[in-house]
Design a protein around this nucleic acid. Structure first.
Lengths: 199, 199
DNA sequence: AATAAATTAGAACGGGCGTTCAATTTAGTG
DNA sequence: CACTAAATTGAACGCCCGTTCTAATTTATT
């Protein structure tokens, strides 16, 4: 009666790995299950042995990716002492870890009326995660007096959209060349929210 | 021997109109020629009477849309006297006239290896238009002393990506509610590039 | 009224898609 | 070694896509 332990986890891992890569490169609609099959070396049928369907597979990958992004940020965050440092750190974290193209795939899926509500909802919840991270930094900065008091939700949207917009450039430019740009955005943003010392 | 003048221009106009709408709503891949046929009331075959194929049709629409955007801006621009005013005006112009979803469709098309190089090139040229518009405002501001002298190309990218990022919000929020946000972005941006008067 | 060209519809095609399913191989168990 | 369940394949299905083709209809000119 002992549980048998076979091993299809290698296969599953391979599929996940390759699928993440291809979805990132080509988006959701333009990635076929056949593409994933070919890249992973497993048959189309086997993909359906591990995953219910293409949609569920994508959502899982998006969740994994975002979770990874968030965990890595949490690990890094404590190494910064001020909210200001955290903002700069976040900009770099976004530049190097945010999987813009995968998120783009999410928009494709979400905008398709045929997609299950469940998946759309799941993806929507993912999009909230980075915003919450930005918000918490801004909040902290206001509370400890680094930043002026102001409309934190508005600031969150502003910094979030700016970083999101900048990420579009990652499609066409080498990441490292974008560092100054990301930093400059934070510098400009900070210039408007930093508390100016009374002298 | 005189040229006959029939009238299928109504049909063509209808198709263009509906196709623009649907491409904007659903993106490139998820819009089928059948969708356009149904919405316009003309047969699939007739669409191919007017347009070579789906790809060319899309490129044409994108060009029309961008041309329209640019013309409208040119018409508006002269009503602003300072570069500062122009930036605020541009933000509103982008908010209300930039067809983000259509541009998204362009990215889909461009990222498909099967797309013709010609189309990809045409779309790429379109993406340059708004950037050039931003740049010219910044240039003007520097030249007439409104703005500090600085790296204009970097500023262009920064303001461009910010407005582009903000535009993503137009998918989910009422345009008019976004006005303050767009204005706030410009205000923050200006705070960093405006020349401070010597006193 | 006849004609020829412009316009439109609709059926048909080949292909690729996501998905299902039956059959086969693989590997642990007694 | 036989047995059984997991793992994996590959063919098959039905669907919708972009596109083409042919035939019908409308329209302007003669």
């Amino acid at each position: 009666m002992g549980k048998r332990r076979y091993n299809s986890e290698n296969a599953k891992r391979d599929i996940i790995e390759k699928a993440t890569l291809i979805f990132s490169q080509k988006g959701y609609n333009q990635t076929s299950v056949q593409d994933i099959s070919k890249a992973s070396g497993y048959s189309k049928g086997h993909i359906y042995y591990h995953f219910q369907n293409k949609e569920k597979l994508f959502v899982l990958l998006a969740q994994n990716t975002m979770q990874d992004w968030y965990k890595k940020w949490m690990a890094k965050e404590s190494s910064y002492t001020t909210a200001t440092e955290k903002l700069y750190g976040m900009a770099m974290h976004v530049l190097y870890n945010y999987q813009t193209p995968l998120l783009k795939g999410g928009q494709e899926l979400a905008s398709n009326p045929a997609s299950s509500l469940e998946s759309v909802k799941a993806l929507h919840e993912l999009a909230v995660i980075p915003m919450a991270s930005y918000r918490s930094i801004l909040q902290e900065g206001v509370e400890n007096g680094e930043f002026e008091s102001g409309n934190i939700d508005e600031w969150t949207l502003l910094v979030g959209t700016w970083l999101g917009g900048l990420c579009q450039l990652t499609n066409t430019q080498e990441l490292s060349t974008l560092e100054p740009l990301f930093n400059q955005a934070i510098t400009m943003f900070l210039a408007s929210i930093k508390r100016r010392n009374k002298e």
